[in-house]
Design a protein around this nucleic acid. Structure first.
Length: 421
RNA sequence: GGCGGGUUGCCCGAGCGGCCAAUGGGAGGGGACUGUAAAUCCCCCGGCUCUGCCUUCGAAGGUUCAAAUCCUUCACCCGCCA
């Protein structure tokens, strides 16, 4: 099975330029790229879809280039947005570029002897360009009529309007493709399906300026079975940065996938073989309660994004905290490492222990003390897995396991640790 | 530049002098049922030193015993005209 067939099987093909020509060119090692704009300090789970496609291409022997949009990130892509973006300062974007560059790098192999990956920043070739050069050398090849017809632009013309800045985005992205075509003989760009217009604009530019040809491939926007956007939880986006989404939360995110989504997610994100996935699908259908597929998904992704060692730690923590066994039966080492994965507050042993409400608010599990009180009233408050009643409840020293730790819980799975120091 | 319409809690959106912390929906949260799933049902959903108090309805002033609701100015958005 070739790469394209594999991508199709996984549901990763949305659109492509002439497939026969693309297949033909992929018979030999091809240089391809995908861009990531710095719109936040970290990439999120949704970015993983296309980032892993890049990795799939490398594993199939092609040369991937990850482009970090130091320039395009300053301008803002109108695609998929119904409102103008607020511009971020150059310092902020620069900081994000560096972080995302590092992040992206961990998914690609830069030492592959035959097809090493590269990371580039489009600011490198965009910033030396003067406005006049840009208009004469690049702008001249663009027809405003065509630019207006792009979905990303026309949607905005009908809606909230679009600034000249964002209108120009497609020109910048096209120029990136041209530049990589010239420098690296990059002939394929992949991206989310919302990028189709920008990508084919690049192909047009290459054709006009260099009389060259290239290919475009987009992956579908991943949706959950219930029709909502993938990658959001109550807390917001699921980030790849462990500071922004803890590995514990990251693992839980995958583990809590909807049954109807899990096999689909395995296809999209996992590097397991088709046979392995079909096997998991079978066992999942036979006994969904076991959640083997969920676990396999969570393990693989957490290991890939963080590390195998982290996965083991995080999974052990979840086992300890969700286990049927008594928390008090855990030894101090197990308990300490499990709690290390949770948000925590430290209180002083010499002072009076605060009330449960204060502790929970301090740990950040709830937004306010009112919310904490509400939880108690509704019967969703637990100390060391025991239900608490009464807002004024105050843990005593003996509630601290191993004399040191208390586990606060809100609802079924929102946990925090209190350490007595 | 002129005329008209708008700006309400996380989002959408009622309210148009007191009965307004503000109808309704969505999102979110808790409980029950389960499998740390989905669906369903019940409850909650500004804050606090919580039978009360405080801060909110674009911003700042004003009228009034009393304003999200009336007046003035400013800012931003959306139409139509120039």
């Amino acid at each position: 099975m070739n790469l394209i067939e594999d991508l199709r099987w996984r549901g990763l093909l949305a659109q492509s330029t002439d497939e026969a020509a693309l297949l033909d060119s992929l018979k030999k090692p091809t240089t391809l790229y995908c861009g990531f704009d710095p719109t936040a300090p970290s990439l999120h789970a949704g970015n993983l879809v296309v980032l892993l496609v890049l990795r799939r291409f490398q594993l199939a022997g092609h040369n991937p280039i990850a482009l970090v949009g130091g320039a395009t990130g300053l301008v803002g892509d109108p695609s998929g947005k119904n409102e103008e973006r607020t511009l971020n300062s150059t310092e902020i974007v620069e900081g994000w570029v560096n972080r995302i560059r590092t992040q992206v790098s961990s998914f690609l192999d830069f030492d592959a002897p035959k097809n090493p990956a590269q990371v580039v920043n489009n600011l490198d070739w965009t910033s030396p360009l003067s406005a006049i050069e840009f208009l004469r050398d690049i702008g001249k090849h663009f027809s405003v009529n065509q630019m207006l017809s792009k979905d990303s632009v026309s949607a905005r013309l009908e809606g909230g309007g679009i600034s000249y800045t964002e209108f120009s985005y497609q020109v910048l992205q096209s120029y990136d493709f041209l530049e990589l075509y010239r420098r690296n003989n990059c002939t394929l760009q992949v991206g989310g399906s919302d990028q189709w217009g920008n990508i084919v604009a690049g192909l047009d530019l290459i054709r006009r300026v260099e009389q060259g040809s290239g290919h475009a491939l987009t992956v579908p926007l991943l949706m959950k079975a219930d029709g909502t956007k993938f990658g959001k939880t109550a807390g917001g986006s699921v980030w790849l940065d462990p500071e922004m989404t803890s590995p514990y939360a990251f693992f839980q995110f995958w583990l809590n996938s909807d049954d109807k989504d899990v096999i689909n997610f395995l296809k999209v994100f996992s590097f397991k073989s088709h046979e392995e996935i079909l096997e998991l699908e079978k066992s999942h259908n036979e006994n969904p309660g076991l959640r083997e597929a969920h676990r396999a998904l969570a393990r693989e992704l957490t290991s890939l994004v963080h590390s195998e060692e982290t996965t083991q730690r995080v999974e052990a923590a979840a086992r300890a905290l969700f286990g049927q066994g008594e928390l008090s039966e855990l030894d101090e080492v197990t308990l300490a490492s499990a709690l290390a994965e949770l948000p925590r507050t430290t209180i002083s042993a010499s002072e009076e222990i605060p009330t449960w409400v204060d502790l929970l608010a301090a740990s950040g599990v709830v937004d306010s003390k009112s919310a904490a009180r509400r939880i108690v009233k509704e019967g969703g408050a637990y100390l060391n897995n025991e239900k608490i009643s009464g807002e004024d409840f105050r843990p005593s020293k003996t509630d601290f396991l191993c004399g040191k730790y208390a586990v606060l819980r809100k609802g079924k799975r929102d946990l925090a640790a209190v350490e007595l120091a």
